[in-house]
């Protein structure tokens, strides 16, 4: 069993980057690797309970052609990123934490967040939890 933990700093809040984070997290979870996701700024904003299912757009380089390709994949039944993350959490070992600084910046509390988010932590707690995990910044 390859059980090296994965830590993802999820800063971005567009649907393509959120989906990439969900794919990386669920792939690691399927291998039995612990996954720790730290939500910052726009990544955190996307996890607001009242907005999580919204269209969060794509990065600028996607353009119209990229948007059409992503829309087509969705129309074929590709699971949205939050469902992929929910499946990853069902596999076990996946923890999602909100960055407390970002909570202050966005002026939100834990009650505003989707239940996918397990809690709030500062950067020190994140580093301690991540340990010597492989780290991704998305």
């Amino acid at each position: 069993m390859d059980d090296k933990p994965l830590a993802i700093v999820l800063f971005s809040g567009t649907d393509d980057k959120l989906n990439v984070a969900a794919v990386m997290a669920s792939g690691a979870a399927a291998l039995g690797r612990p996954v720790h996701i730290f939500l910052q700024y726009w990544g955190l904003d996307a996890f607001r309970a009242d907005r999580i299912k919204n269209d969060h757009g794509l990065v600028a380089e996607a353009g119209a052609e990229g948007k059409a390709a992503v829309d087509a994949l969705r129309a074929e039944g590709q699971a949205p990123w939050y469902e992929t993350l929910a499946m990853a959490k069902e596999l076990g070992g996946v923890e999602i934490q909100a960055c407390s600084l970002s909570m202050d910046i966005l002026r939100i509390t834990e009650e505003d967040l989707d239940p996918l988010v397990d809690g709030t932590e500062g950067v020190t707690a994140f580093y301690l939890a991540a340990g010597d995990a492989q780290m991704l910044f998305i």
Partner: peptide, 8 residues
């Protein structure tokens, strides 16, 4: 299903 859903 697209990657990584078959594995998940």
């Amino acid at each position: 299903l697209s990657c990584p859903m078959p594995i998940v």
